[in-house]
């Protein structure tokens, strides 16, 4: 193995890191006169190969290690900076499923989140059940509306979405189909931290239910919300993840999505 940058420079090539929607580094070695595509066109053209690569890498990681995806719903909020501080102290990255109104309220928080390598994702323009699930197209509309807000803040959209309350029981097959037509990857969870289940929930309970889940699954997707009690529970949970050598990853547009409605959880 040899370091790429030094050597390719000496052969007259340039080396670029291409920013993309995953934490997989994409490195482009090129001569200006030999390329036709911009970085964005390249990512688009290579999408299927990138999917294959991502999955091969993912398979290799999960051969020996447990993997966890930390996800936070209903933000951003005034708790987000503290969540980011905590994640930063462990070097962990998370995925944030966000609502339009709060994105408008805390744009700087989103900019910080992105700058620190976390993944912004879409929760919709509203959390009200009767509005989100009003008709066949309302779910995708809600995601698209929220995406416009995200784009106005960070200059790009996200195809990763989580529907309010999760895909079961309110979402219909038609609404799912419409979301997929829009290119969206739908993500539920397999560990509910229960931080939003009851107002009386304690951090001890959140810690216990989450670490039990982590012990059970090879691949965990934890649902958190941005709450004071979540912040109390997080240090212990993050410590558990570190002590148990679990790999922390962000979701990726190169993964197919996992939801109860598609029965993609075992």
């Amino acid at each position: 193995m040899i370091s790429i940058r030094n050597l390719t420079r000496e052969l007259g090539y340039e080396v670029d890191y291409i920013e993309n929607s995953t934490n997989t580094p994409v490195i482009r070695i090129y001569k200006q006169e030999q390329i036709k595509l911009t970085n964005t066109e390249l990512l688009y053209k290579c999408h299927l190969e990138l999917v294959d690569h991502y999955n091969a890498v993912y398979k290799k990681i999960i051969e020996n290690r447990r993997v966890v995806f930390l996800t936070f719903d209903d933000g951003p909020s005034h708790f987000t900076p503290q969540i980011l501080d905590l994640l930063d102290s462990y070097g962990f990255k998370a995925t944030f499923f966000m609502l339009s109104d709060y994105m408008k309220k805390y744009p700087d928080v989103i900019k910080r989140m992105v700058a620190e390598g976390h993944l912004p994702a879409i929760h919709g323009s509203t959390h009200f059940r009767n509005e989100v699930y009003k008709n066949d197209f309302s779910v995708r509309n809600s995601m698209d509306t929220a995406n416009n807000v995200l784009k106005s803040i960070i200059g790009r959209t996200s195809l990763l979405c989580r529907v309010p309350y999760g895909s079961v029981p309110y979402m219909t097959k038609k609404q799912l189909y419409d979301l997929k037509l829009g290119g969206y990857k739908v993500w539920d969870w397999n560990i509910d931290s229960c931080d939003s289940k009851r107002s009386s929930v304690t951090s001890e309970y959140i810690i216990s239910i989450t670490t039990q889940g982590l012990g059970k699954h090879k691949e965990s997707i934890i649902l958190f919300h941005e709450k004071a009690v979540t912040l109390q529970a997080l240090p212990t949970i993050l410590r558990y993840i570190k002590d148990n050598n679990i790999v922390v990853k962000v979701l990726s547009e190169y993964m197919p999505g996992k939801s109860q409605i598609e029965k993609s959880f075992k």
């Binding site: 490195i27 070695i29 090129y30």
Partner: peptide, 23 residues
């Protein structure tokens, strides 16, 4: 945070690494 294995692109094409992983 540990980074994933990178994807290497030469000009306009993904480099086929025959199953090996750059680091």
């Amino acid at each position: 945070m540990e980074s994933d294995y990178p994807i290497i692109i030469v000009n306009d094409d993904v480099l086929n690494l025959n199953g090996s992983f750059p680091e």
